[in-house]
Write a protein that binds this DNA or RNA. Structure first.
Lengths: 213, 213
DNA sequence: GTCAGCATACCGACCAGTTGGTATGCTGAC
DNA sequence: GTCAGCATACCAACTGGTCGGTATGCTGAC
């Protein structure tokens, strides 16, 4: 998700540098495979600085998920797709933005929270919980628009909350497929699934139109 | 995926014991966080036995993805949903089977290949490649049925190959959401997304029926 | 002077991988 | 039929290096 937030100019304190290093290294190698020494090296600080700001590696993981959550939250809250008058257009605008963000190597568009929770869901409940909040936060930001679009479409058996979570699920699945596809095909592999997701939302929410375009 | 294959009675050799231990521990802790010592302990063999059968931990990862691939392949090939006369019923039968397999803790239904590729996609191209083959193998097994259903529905802009991959993407995404949701809600969280996937397939492939049921 | 914000030096535990060895079973020459 | 020769399967102990974490010291701002 998100290339690199333009709003936060450059990490100044050791804490911010470590969090930025965490985003990069966790995306590349995962949480377990990223050592504290590597994080310090990437951030250009020493181990003393690390344990001054974080009581443990796990604590950095929690802070990293929080950092990621607020970064992505701000990014999508400020995006232009909110300006559309129609709720379905806003939802599809979100999907289109997500598609547009997918380019280059996997580690430039993958999700830090999704990556971390996969490794830490059993060993650290605090990391799992913050990652869950991060993903569900992204989901919740779409819930009102989905509710409006759902009400108009007359679709039954689907709640806006569930559909908002499903959007995030497909995005996470797309990232896994991208990682599996390999560097050369990663972006294309990921985009493919967001296109299917877009089609699902259109079929479900288009109202009176028939499914085929 | 798959609780535990009934056809392979019990691991006898150290190699098989290590692979079974790998399935369990990688699902629980991930690949990086699982040590060779842990694998040996779980398998009840010594380190010497480990490095007799595998030249490195990475080599076990490759063998594990292969083992997983053939286990799941056999399991789904033998499943009863193939008996349906209608191709769409076979596809939906597969989804229903996947839904039925989701119960209990995440580590009893999650995918070893999807878990491993997330951690190893950058550090080991051989592990990534085998995991990719495992996931795409599951996808390919549905391609003919999807092609038949697609042809009959008249849907345009979708290929059977892409749709088959998308099914696996949603499954992988569902597992991530399950891990994030936490132990108590994991299974329900995962099932939710397969229900959406089922709805998408129905909307797309149902032919002349309108989307809402 | 004191305290946040670091840096340096170090620790014990654990890591993947190595070593040197044993038990067992197959194979073919005699 | 038996036994040398050898491959396979496994074991226990060990190694160099890396791990997360700690103890302590410096330094400039207030």
């Amino acid at each position: 998700m998100i290339p690199n937030h333009p709003f936060r100019p450059a990490p100044l304190t050791a804490r911010d540098k470590l969090l930025e290093a965490g985003v990069k290294l966790v995306r590349q190698h995962g949480f377990s495979a990223t050592s504290v020494d590597q994080l310090c090296g990437e951030a250009g600080v020493t181990k003393g600085a690390f344990f001054h700001h974080f009581v443990s590696k796990e604590a950095l993981g929690v802070a990293l998920a929080d950092y990621w959550s607020s970064s992505t939250g701000q990014f999508f809250a400020a995006a232009r797709f909110h300006q559309h008058a129609d709720p379905l257009d806003r939802v599809l605008g979100y999907i289109d933005l997500r598609i547009a963000l997918i380019s280059g190597p996997v580690e430039s568009f993958s999700c830090v929270a999704g990556t971390m929770v996969q490794e830490a869901f059993r060993s650290s409940d605090s990391i799992r919980s913050v990652c869950n909040s991060s993903i569900l936060g992204n989901a919740a930001a779409l819930e009102d628009d989905l509710a409006a679009a759902l009400a108009r479409s007359g679709a039954s058996g689907v709640t806006a909350a569930s559909l908002s979570r499903h959007i995030q699920a497909v995005i996470q699945g797309a990232f896994i497929m991208a990682k599996a596809a390999g560097a050369a095909d990663a972006a294309a592999a990921a985009r493919e699934h967001l296109m299917h997701l877009r089609r699902y939302l259109e079929l479900l929410l288009a109202g009176e139109t028939i499914h085929a375009n």
